[in-house]
Computed example of a mutant assay.
Amino acid sequence: MGLNHDPNKCKKMIEDNINIEFFRAILDPVRSELLIFLSVYGEMTIGEIAEHFPQNRSVISRHLDLMNRFNSVQRRKEGREIYYKANKEFIVDTFEETTNNIKALMNLEK
């Protein structure tokens, strides 16, 4: 039975080769807007970021914390302020790695 016909094997290969949790973290509508915003405007505090979004500061903070866990944003603390910025290099590298892995997986199907 080929890979096409074994859903468990196919699922395992995809999970092993694609960082699905990273994509879930950045493709949420609010988080994707936050990522675009930080990519354009650079490093900002939660308060500065929240001024530009309809969600309250605590909601923005939770989104940013999740994105930080999956490395799509970086955070640093300076005094009492926490600054966030898009982790552009990691994001691009993850997309490139995913593209290469998908190409390799697709070639297995031939």
Results as ranks from 00 to 15, higher is better:
residue 106 M to A: 10
residue 75 R to C: 04
residue 99 T to N: 12
residue 25 A to F: 06
residue 33 E to Y: 00
residue 67 M to W: 06
residue 105 L to G: 14
residue 39 S to T: 14
residue 81 E to K: 14
residue 2 G to W: 00
residue 61 S to Q: 13
residue 1 M to E: 12
residue 60 I to K: 07
residue 88 K to Y: 01
residue 52 H to E: 14
residue 10 C to I: 11
residue 4 N to M: 15
residue 100 N to T: 10
residue 53 F to P: 07
residue 62 R to G: 10
residue 44 M to E: 13
residue 67 M to C: 11
residue 85 K to S: 15
residue 109 E to M: 12
residue 58 S to Q: 14
residue 7 P to R: 04
residue 63 H to D: 08
residue 54 P to N: 05
residue 79 G to P: 07
residue 64 L to F: 08
residue 62 R to D: 14
residue 84 Y to G: 04
residue 89 E to K: 14
residue 69 R to A: 04
residue 42 G to P: 11
residue 82 I to H: 03
residue 90 F to C: 08
residue 99 T to H: 12
residue 68 N to Y: 02
residue 67 M to R: 07
residue 33 E to T: 02
residue 38 L to C: 10
residue 36 I to N: 13
residue 29 P to T: 02
residue 90 F to K: 14
residue 57 R to T: 12
residue 94 T to E: 15
residue 36 I to A: 12
residue 89 E to C: 01
residue 15 E to F: 01
residue 29 P to R: 00
residue 65 D to A: 09
residue 55 Q to D: 10
residue 91 I to H: 07
residue 27 L to S: 11
residue 74 Q to K: 12
residue 20 I to M: 07
residue 3 L to N: 08
residue 92 V to C: 08
residue 34 L to V: 12
residue 43 E to P: 07
residue 60 I to H: 04
residue 83 Y to D: 09
residue 98 T to C: 11
residue 30 V to R: 11
residue 68 N to E: 15
residue 94 T to N: 09
residue 21 E to A: 11
residue 100 N to G: 14
residue 16 D to Y: 02
residue 14 I to A: 03
residue 55 Q to A: 10
residue 29 P to V: 06
residue 54 P to K: 11
residue 21 E to W: 00
residue 91 I to K: 08
residue 71 N to P: 02
residue 4 N to D: 12
residue 61 S to I: 01
residue 57 R to W: 05
residue 83 Y to T: 04
residue 101 N to S: 15
residue 110 K to H: 10
residue 20 I to N: 04
residue 16 D to K: 13
residue 79 G to I: 02
residue 8 N to K: 10
residue 6 D to R: 03
residue 74 Q to R: 10
residue 2 G to A: 05
residue 84 Y to S: 07
residue 103 K to I: 13
residue 8 N to T: 04
residue 33 E to W: 00
residue 27 L to I: 02
residue 64 L to N: 09
residue 9 K to E: 10
residue 90 F to Y: 15
residue 56 N to Y: 03
residue 54 P to V: 06
residue 29 P to C: 06
residue 102 I to R: 10
residue 32 S to H: 05
residue 19 N to H: 05
residue 25 A to R: 01
residue 74 Q to Y: 00
residue 41 Y to K: 12
